[in-house]
């Protein structure tokens, strides 16, 4: 398969999340306009920073007249989860040339990680073509994010209440479609269960800290169960 086909596969796998992101791009653009920020500021945010939830948080902080360092520190905390994605993706990118890795780092967002990372596990991406799938996913999302930001800034009130339609459910369903193939062994079920309980319990923590903690906890439990079942297997083999 050629590079274009692979990029197309990445874009295709991201469609539900792109649809889910549309209301947020529109909302971001219109909120920026509602806060008397210029359309150029909104465009610069979406095209240079390119970080969905951190952009919304920053709008809130700007409206609250927060100082620069608070905005930057909060952005740091909100985006901290991406370092986990990078660590997990390392094994698939380390052989690539630096300029490709620098580009891929820019596009390491929730949606692209969610769409592409499991494809390596399910066999539809590999070290040879995975980066093309990845770039296809992130460029299509990037395009949508910037187009909807502009549209939102120009005509935020055009589709009133679109953020209440529940288009984000497309993302929920997609993530479930990505998660279920993993649910084949006890460690993965363990991580799944802990992630649910911990994320719901810690929901009220600010700046996605609950999300980060719940993720770390679930990873830890999955890892421990994995270790335990390996030791168990070895012991079983020794007894034969």
């Amino acid at each position: 398969m050629n590079a274009y086909k692979n990029a197309q596969r990445g874009a295709f796998a991201s469609i539900p999340m792109i649809i889910g992101g549309v209301p947020f791009g529109l909302l971001f653009g219109s909120l920026a306009a509602a806060n008397d920020l210029s359309i150029w500021f909104a465009i610069a945010m979406s095209s240079i920073v390119f970080a969905g939830s951190a952009q919304f948080v920053a709008l809130g902080l700007i409206a609250a007249d927060a100082p620069l360092w608070v905005i930057i520190l909060t952005t740091f905390v909100v985006n901290l989860r991406h370092i986990l994605y990078a660590a997990d993706m390392l094994r698939f990118v380390r052989h690539l040339p630096l300029r490709l890795r620098l580009l891929m780092g820019f596009g390491l967002i929730d949606e692209t990680y969610a769409a592409v990372r499991p494809m390596y596990d399910m066999g539809s991406a590999n070290k040879a073509d995975g980066h093309q799938v990845y770039i296809g996913s992130f460029l299509s999302f990037y395009l949508m994010w910037n187009v909807t930001t502009v549209l939102g800034a120009l005509a935020g009130e055009l589709i009133p209440g679109i953020s209440d339609w529940g288009l984000e459910f497309a993302m929920v369903a997609t993530f479930i479609g990505i998660v279920t193939p993993y649910l084949k062994s006890v460690p993965y079920w363990g991580a799944f269960g802990v992630a649910i309980i911990a994320s719901v319990t810690l929901k009220e923590m600010p700046n996605h800290l609950g999300l980060i903690l719940a993720t770390l906890l679930a990873v830890l439990v999955g890892y421990c169960l994995d270790r335990y079942s390996e030791v168990d297997k070895k012991r079983g083999a020794a007894n034969v």
């Binding site: 989860r81 986990l84 994605y85 660590a87 997990d88 094994r91 929730d110 990680y113 969610a114 990372r117 499991p118 596990d121 984000e168 993302m171 929920v172 993530f175 479930i176 990505i178 998660v179 993993y182 649910l183 460690p187 993965y188 991580a191 799944f192 802990v194 992630a195 649910i196 911990a198 994320s199 719901v200 929901k203 999300l211 719940a214 993720t215 679930a218 990873v219 830890l220 999955g222 890892y223 994995d226 270790r227």
Partner: peptide, 22 residues
């Protein structure tokens, strides 16, 4: 490396569970 394999299922579940259950 072994622990990081649990990141996809953990983070994706932790993102959507509060949306779905609360």
């Amino acid at each position: 490396d072994k622990a990081l394999k649990f990141v996809p299922i953990s983070v994706l579940t932790a993102i959507i569970a509060p949306m779905s259950l609360t």
